[in-house]
Amino acid sequence: MTTAVKAAKPTAVKAAKATAIKQRTLPMLVMAVFTVYFLTPIWWLFVGASKSSEQFTSTNPLWFADFDLFTNISDLVAYREGVFLRWLLNSVLYTGGAALLGTLLAAMCGYALAKYRFRGRELIFNVVLSGVLVPATALALPLFLIFSKVDATNTFWSVFLPSLVNPFGVYLARIYATASVPDELLEAARIDGSGEVRTFFKVSTRLMFPALVTIFLFHFVAVWNNFLLPLIMLSDERLFPVTLGLYTWNTQVNQIPELRGLVIVGALLSITPLVVAFLLLQRFWRNGLGAGAVK
């Protein structure tokens, strides 16, 4: 009996190890496939951006030829008196500004809905929540007609103001505020004589911080990629965000084929801020997702 057990044990361990490896290999494989799938276009973009326009058509699209990335970038920046840089700056203003302010608004709104009891609370929440279901594209044309009424189309505000709204952020903020800000703590703050606004900024936002980063990131990406609204609102090139500017160039490739190279380099540069934002903030983001999931 004992010998049998002794003999059986190593094989059992081996078998367990084997299944463990199997169990790990499959997910790794799936993930590897997806990583390649998601990174290939970016790789293509990077390689393409590093080529001269002649080599772009005639060499392997997934491997380098002469490395002209920096020449291409300086061409891009010099083209039409640096209008591309202006577009990048606009995008940062629209996106950074709207994401910061929008996150603050969403946080306040979600917090209020989570922590205060008042009449119509659920109604307001449900109305906001139904806003999640309305795609931003469907609102672009009505917004244009409304802004036309007050003669405010083709202005910075015509893109900035609608971008502040983020119903999904309100939803997230409410969920997180419920989970991470204990009522007892607010009670203690009140007893210590802290006003509601001060409590919100000094206590609650700290507790909600991971959630706020998540909201900020979502919002940042949504506004950065929002294309239809500026397309419909803006006709002054100096106000374009980078997405619209590049698209405009891309539609002119028939007439000015040189633009294709600039569009590719521009596309590479235009995704860089997104990548940077994600790399810097993903630590917080992961925490935020985890916190929300457990509680």
């Binding site: 007609l145 419909i232 006709s235 539609t251």
Partner: peptide
């Protein structure tokens, strides 16, 4: 004023602007 080529969006914008006057 500028924008994408006609079928790329500028015609659609013109029609919207006609509606809005």
């Amino acid at each position: 004023q500028t924008g994408p080529n006609g079928n790329g969006g500028t015609y659609a914008n013109f029609f919207n602007q006609l509606k809005a006057g």
